[in-house]
């Protein structure tokens, strides 16, 4: 139980690094994961990677990395394309959060399949769920991280966030 709780805490910390981290979060991450950068540098890297409104930025959102929908009756031209918000994964997770009574922060309301939320949900499943639930969630919603890492490399995002994504990939790996 203690081990699960610790793993969940690590997931929550990684989630915090992926959405509006503060200096304390960055400091905690440096300590916990042995990141070889100053916390202030992580804040700068976060802005450059995820925020910069005038340039290409990394969007750690599942919908963007999967076909928008698998429903055959959708006739939008984007239906089978990748790269669009609000896809099946977003719609599913929005329903799931509602069913579980989970409240999403306003800034992430349009991306219920943001990696920060998915890591948090996995943490909750570690604390309260069953191995079967976690296996299902991993296989259906956390199978896109290699694509996210490839996109991060393509955009040449700061090394610390490439490292954070690698930590995320390891943290969501199937349980032994």
């Amino acid at each position: 139980m203690r081990k699960a709780s610790q793993a969940a805490e690590r997931l929550y910390l990684l989630a915090n690094l992926l959405y509006e981290p503060d200096l304390a979060t960055c400091q905690a991450a440096v300590t916990e994961f042995g990141l070889a950068v100053a916390p202030e540098e992580i804040l700068r890297a976060y802005w450059q990677t995820f925020v910069n409104p005038v340039g290409p930025r990394l969007r750690p959102v599942e919908s963007l990395f999967k076909p928008w929908t698998t429903f055959a009756d959708c006739q939008l031209p984007l239906a089978r394309q990748k790269g669009w918000l609000g896809g099946d994964s977003a719609a599913h997770l929005r329903s799931l959060y509602a069913a579980l009574g989970l409240e999403v922060p306003p800034g992430l309301a349009h991306t219920p399949d943001h990696l920060a939320l998915e890591l948090t949900l996995l943490g909750l499943l570690l604390e309260h769920g069953t191995p079967e639930m976690r296996a299902t969630f991993r296989s259906q919603h956390l199978d896109w991280l290699p694509d996210l890492q490839a996109r991060a490399a393509e955009l040449d995002v700061p090394a610390v966030y490439q490292q954070v994504l690698e930590l995320c990939a390891r943290a969501v790996a199937p349980e032994e």
Binding site: Q6, E9, R10, Y12, L13, A15, N16, Y19, A24, T25, A28, T31, E32, D88, S89, H92, S95, L96, Y97, A99, L100, G101, L102, E103, V104, P105, L108, A116, L117, T120, L121, L124, L125, H128, G129, T130, M133, T136, F137, Q140, H141
Partner: peptide
């Protein structure tokens, strides 16, 4: 593990019982 309590993005009073009740919806 750091003792700092991180923000939880999904505000919840989630319990195992609630999760089990919602288990079917968890499956996409």
């Amino acid at each position: 593990m750091s003792s700092i309590t991180r923000r939880r993005f999904l505000k919840t009073g989630l319990t195992t019982a609630a999760l089990l009740a919602a288990a079917p919806v968890l499956d996409m």
